[in-house]
Simulated scan of single mutants.
Amino acid sequence: MLLVALIGLHLQPLSISPLEKHFAIILIFIVAIIIYGIAYVLTKLKPQDAEYLSKFRFIRLVFGIIAIELLASIIISPFWLSVVILCSILIVGVLCLYNKFIN
């Protein structure tokens, strides 16, 4: 929520809509939020199996990171490449830790 407010404040002096300038990023953000929401709902509605829950928690973690990274890339657009690289390193680190705990 805070990142969305910051995007509005960041683009307000420029008098342009975030949808005009960053349409692809916002579209991917919406898809990531939908996948996160589906994983959240399935976690809450399905039987509480430990293997099942760990997979959906992992999906929620990865898509939550992706959604935050996409919003941050709009705010700091000149440095978007460094944000993408940093987020990729973070996701790979999370994947390695996830595999370490599973095995």
Results as ranks from 00 to 15, higher is better:
M1Q: 11
M1Y: 14
M1H: 12
M1N: 14
L2G: 15
L3T: 10
V4N: 09
V4I: 12
V4S: 07
A5F: 14
A5N: 11
I7K: 02
I7M: 01
G8K: 07
L9R: 02
L9I: 00
L11W: 04
Q12F: 05
P13T: 02
P13R: 04
P13L: 01
P13V: 04
L14T: 07
S15F: 04
S17E: 03
P18E: 01
P18T: 02
K21Q: 11
H22S: 02
I25V: 10
L27N: 05
I28K: 00
I30R: 06
I30H: 04
V31S: 08
I34W: 09
I34Q: 03
I35T: 13
I38N: 10
A39G: 11
Y40E: 15
V41R: 06
L42N: 14
T43F: 14
T43K: 11
K44P: 03
K46M: 14
K46S: 11
A50C: 04
A50E: 10
Y52I: 03
L53G: 13
L53N: 15
S54P: 00
S54D: 07
K55W: 14
K55L: 14
I59R: 11
R60I: 12
R60E: 10
F63S: 07
F63Q: 11
F63N: 13
I65W: 08
I65E: 13
I66N: 09
I66C: 09
I68G: 09
E69A: 08
L71M: 13
L71C: 09
S73W: 07
I74C: 05
I75W: 09
I75R: 04
I76P: 02
I76M: 13
P78F: 11
V83I: 13
V83A: 05
V83F: 02
V84C: 06
I85E: 03
C87S: 10
S88W: 03
L90T: 10
L90K: 01
I91C: 05
V92H: 04
L95G: 01
L97Q: 10
L97P: 01
Y98V: 00
N99I: 08
K100D: 11
K100F: 13
K100Q: 14
K100T: 10
N103S: 06
